[in-house]
């Protein structure tokens, strides 16, 4: 465990909590893509099945349980508790265009052709593109609430920090996991455009809105 990995995990947690709190405090999930949230919940559930098979550390297991519970709670808030505020008309990304190719790829390119390993690979690939419905929704409505942009910032920061963590681990431990690294790179790149807008607009106190 190095500082970049820890900081990455923490910003991931911060992102998840920001989103939960935003929905809970405003009693509304307007502007949030329920589809992205379902994808993230699927990512956690398929990846953390190893909670039942191996024990790595108390930290590892507790974080996994927190991530899974929070992501399922978010889906519940969007689709059940605050469903009336869910902006389904703008959440029109076709998720099957992500899930089907990602599913196929995880069968073809993996470390080991076993059910657990294929599910892990599926979750890694799926996570890298799971934010697309949310970004698509923002591009459709042309704007995002500032708190939503903070959520996206921490989510992107998490992946960026993981990239540094992998460079670190490669140099100091000789460890590298090509599947995670390539997927992590893709994931980080998807946030670049957003990062640019975040720095040039949101951090200067303006609302994130896209030119018409």
């Amino acid at each position: 465990m190095n500082i970049f990995r820890l900081a990455g995990d923490v910003s991931h947690l911060v992102a998840i909590i920001i989103l939960l709190l935003k929905i809970w405090k405003t009693r509304s999930c307007a502007g949030i893509s329920g589809k992205s949230q379902i994808l993230f919940a699927s990512v956690f559930v398929t990846r953390y099945l190893d909670l039942f098979t191996i024990f790595i550390s108390l930290y590892n297991s507790s974080m996994k349980i927190i991530y899974i519970s929070c992501s399922i709670a978010t889906v519940y808030l969007v689709y059940f508790k605050f469903k009336a505020t869910y902006d389904g008309n703008h959440d029109t990304f076709r998720v099957e265009f992500l899930v089907v190719p990602v599913g196929g790829l995880s069968f073809l390119v993996n470390h080991d052709f076993s059910p657990m390993e294929i599910l892990w690979t599926f979750s890694i690939y799926l996570e890298s593109v799971a934010i697309l419905p949310q970004l698509f929704m923002i591009s459709k409505t042309g704007e995002a609430e500032t708190i939503t942009t903070h959520y996206l910032f921490f989510l992107g920061l998490y992946r960026g920090l993981y990239l540094i963590n992998w460079i670190w681990r490669y140099y100091f431990e000789g460890f590298f996991d090509l599947i995670a690294i390539v997927a992590g790179l893709v994931q980080t790149v998807l946030y670049c455009d957003f990062f640019y807008l975040y720095v040039t607009k949101v951090l200067k106190g303006k609302k994130l809105s896209l030119p018409a």
């Binding site: 990995r5 995990d9 991931h12 990846r47 190893d50 191996i54 790595i56 590892n60 974080m63 996994k64 991530y67 470390h111 080991d112 390993e117 892990w120 993981y162 963590n165 996991d177 995670a180």
Partner: peptide
């Protein structure tokens, strides 16, 4: 090799 398959990251 055994460690290779253990995913210790989140």
């Amino acid at each position: 090799p055994e460690g290779r398959k253990m995913h210790d990251e989140l």
